[in-house]
């Protein structure tokens, strides 16, 4: 069984193929020889195939922010990877990822929408943001009226798949 993670929201899968004499980890088709030199907290030092990589890291919940060279990566541990996939399946709901207020609704229950259509404008941290339909579908329900506040994680809009076109009925 693999160790499933996310790297900047993309799936990454690791398999430990050997632990002795060296720790060997498979990622895709490549097997890497890995050693960890620094294990204390924020600073890290890992050796991969003989090359040392150093940087900084910080875990918040099941996500780890990793500063490596001149860029920062957001790595999801297996729990984050699971969560992303359970939410992503079907894309039936638009959730708020931070608290805010509904500024305007651009759709109505029963409306057919295309992926990318703007459905709702919300305001969080003094910025207005438009949320778009994750896929084609029909608006099933709008859970927050305009000008109301919502909390982080609140369900804003649910979307159902378009019904398959019906065969024309005989007259």
């Amino acid at each position: 069984m693999s160790y499933e993670m996310l790297l900047n929201e993309q799936d990454v899968s690791l398999d430990i193929v050997a632990r002795r004499p060296d720790l060997r980890i498979k990622n895709g088709d490549t097997v890497h020889t890995v050693a960890e030199l620094e294990t204390t907290g924020a600073a890290f030092e890992v050796v991969i195939d003989g090359k040392t990589h150093t940087g900084w890291r910080y875990a918040i919940g099941d996500e780890v922010f990793v500063r490596l060279g001149t860029r920062t990566f957001i790595v999801g541990l297996p729990q984050a990877q699971l969560r992303a996939h359970s939410q992503g399946a079907g894309h039936d709901a638009l959730h708020a990822d931070m608290p805010g207020t509904v500024i305007a609704l651009h759709t109505e229950v029963g409306a057919e929408v295309k992926a990318g259509d703007k459905l709702i404008t919300i305001e969080s941290m003094k910025l207005q943001v438009g949320l778009v339909a994750p896929r084609d579908g029909v608006i099933e329900a709008i859970h927050v009226p305009a000008e109301t506040a919502f909390d982080r994680g609140a369900l804003l809009i649910s979307l159902v798949a378009l019904a398959a076109p019906e065969a024309p009925k005989a007259a």
Binding site: Y3, E36, V66, V75
Partner: peptide, 25 residues
């Protein structure tokens, strides 16, 4: 990111996870 950077970032995070450490060490 290069494959090398990617694996380094992922491992730096994985080594913080007790489950991963248990299996690895």
């Amino acid at each position: 990111a290069s494959p090398e950077e990617q694996i380094a970032a992922v491992l730096a995070a994985a080594f913080l996870d007790v489950d991963f450490r248990r299996i690895a060490f």
